[in-house]
């Protein structure tokens, strides 16, 4: 069997990592940024697995297992957070949160503002609580 040399793995890992980093820095959508970060993580994971394979022990693999587990938890929390953020601003644009900056600083203005988001479909509204809705007359089906 022809062994794939180590540097191939490393290149793949590096590419993944770089893509992820670029994605994280360049994109403003929270979910995409999160996915980019995950991608960087996978790049590192590939590195670990590859090194472990070529060192001949399983420590790297074990470590990656842990990383993945943690990443999964992280994803759950991150997505929950993103959902909350979306709810309060009705947008996933991360730059909308720049007002968390140090007080007294000038806001950064977008040179190319995003197109306004499409109007939202109103969610179905429940009637106000406490008032019983009118019921249709109950008829016997028998």
């Amino acid at each position: 069997m022809t062994a794939v040399p180590l540097h191939h793995y490393l290149v793949v890992g590096a590419v993944l990592f770089a893509l992820g980093a670029i994605g994280f820095l360049a994109r403003r959508n929270l979910i995409v940024m999160f996915l980019s970060a995950e991608m960087m993580l996978q790049g590192v994971a590939i590195n670990l697995v590859a090194f472990a394979r070529f060192r001949g022990n399983l420590q790297g693999q074990a470590f990656v297992l842990f990383t993945l587990t943690v990443a999964a938890c992280e994803a759950a929390i991150a997505l929950a957070l993103i959902l909350m953020l979306y709810r309060s601003r009705r947008s996933l644009d991360v730059s909308l949160w720049q007002d968390l900056r140090e007080p007294g600083q000038e806001p950064t203005v977008d040179e190319e503002p995003l197109p306004p988001p499409p109007p939202e479909e109103p969610l179905p509204k429940l009637p106000p609580a406490g008032v019983e809705p009118p019921h249709p007359e109950e008829t016997s089906r028998v």
């Binding site: 360049a26 900056r101 600083q105």
Partner: peptide, 17 residues
């Protein structure tokens, strides 16, 4: 150092990188 804290996550990440 206050201007560094401009509230843009990407700026922080870039600075870190």
């Amino acid at each position: 150092f206050r201007p560094m804290q401009n509230g843009l996550v990407q700026f922080y990440a870039l600075a870190m990188a």
